[in-house]
């Protein structure tokens, strides 16, 4: 059917370099512009809707109804998070009452470079559901894909390429997560890791390797394709693990 790349430690290293280089530019864009680009991704995915449906049927063994549902859910999810780009800061930021004469406020800022071990199930929707909330606040991401239909991840890369998304913001690696997880955990230039469906062993490895550089860890369990389609699989709270809160004390009055 296809030969799929099996990413090595060095591919991951190169991806981190690309993601780090892209980070300042992406985080520096206006939230509204990030929203425009996410929305554009949704549009581009929609324009290739039938191709993705066919691929899901042919390579992932979906029946056509489930395939249509997954592609439509993926499009909707991109639009959903596009809306959150310029709103989540209002919801998760705050103005803090303090006793001194200061105007004190907290704003969420992106963590930086995030590595994400993507779900095994729902080869398209699972990927989108991991990627979108991470890039919303201005993070750049390396998506590590190991599932039965990795060509969908590569098809998605074509969608991203035509969505005005700057190079390096989303990097997709296909390969064995067992091979890569130790290096991902230990890489000191990775700020946060999302792992979906991690085994106890993987969790231990990531936490041990990431301890020295205090890498943020977010573990989520995998879901069935039906569950990934449900509204419970999208939430502004999925953005929160990948932000750092900055609090500013601004002198006022007198």
């Amino acid at each position: 059917m296809a030969n799929i790349c099996r990413a090595s430690r060095k591919d991951f290293r190169n991806a981190v370099v690309a993601a780090r280089d892209a980070h300042d530019g992406w985080a520096g864009r206006s939230a509204f512009n990030r929203g425009q680009i996410l929305y554009r991704m949704g549009e581009m995915l929609e324009s290739r809707r039938q191709a993705f449906v066919d691929t899901l049927v042919e390579t992932a063994g979906y029946d056509s109804g489930a395939a249509v549902a997954e592609v439509d859910a993926a499009i909707d999810r991109l639009v959903y998070y596009a809306g959150w780009t310029d709103k989540f800061a209002q919801v998760f930021g705050s103005i803090n009452p303090v006793a001194s004469s200061h105007f004190d406020f907290s704003v969420p800022e992106p963590s930086g470079v995030v590595a994400a071990f993507c779900p095994q199930s729902a080869p398209l929707l699972g990927l989108v559901s991991c990627m979108a909330p991470i890039i919303v606040p201005g993070n750049t991401v390396i998506l590590l894909v190991e599932n039965d239909a990795p060509t969908l991840a590569l098809d998605l890369a074509e969608v991203l390429d035509t969505s005005d998304l700057p190079g390096g913001v989303v990097n997709i690696l296909t390969g064995s997560r067992e091979e890569l997880r130790g290096h991902v955990g230990g890489h000191r230039d990775v700020d946060a890791i999302l792992s979906v469906g991690a085994s106890t062993e993987e969790r231990t490895i990531l936490e041990r390797e990431g301890a020295e550089s205090v890498t943020r860890m977010e573990f989520r369990s995998d879901r069935s394709p039906t569950e990934w389609r449900a509204d419970e699989s999208q939430s502004p709270y999925w953005i929160v693990p990948f932000v750092e809160v900055k609090t500013t004390w601004h002198p006022v009055g007198r």
């Binding site: 981190v16 230990g186 000191r188 230039d189």
Partner: peptide, 9 residues
């Protein structure tokens, strides 16, 4: 150390 380092340090 066998781990990739970061310019932040």
């Amino acid at each position: 150390y066998g781990r990739y380092y970061s310019k932040r340090y």
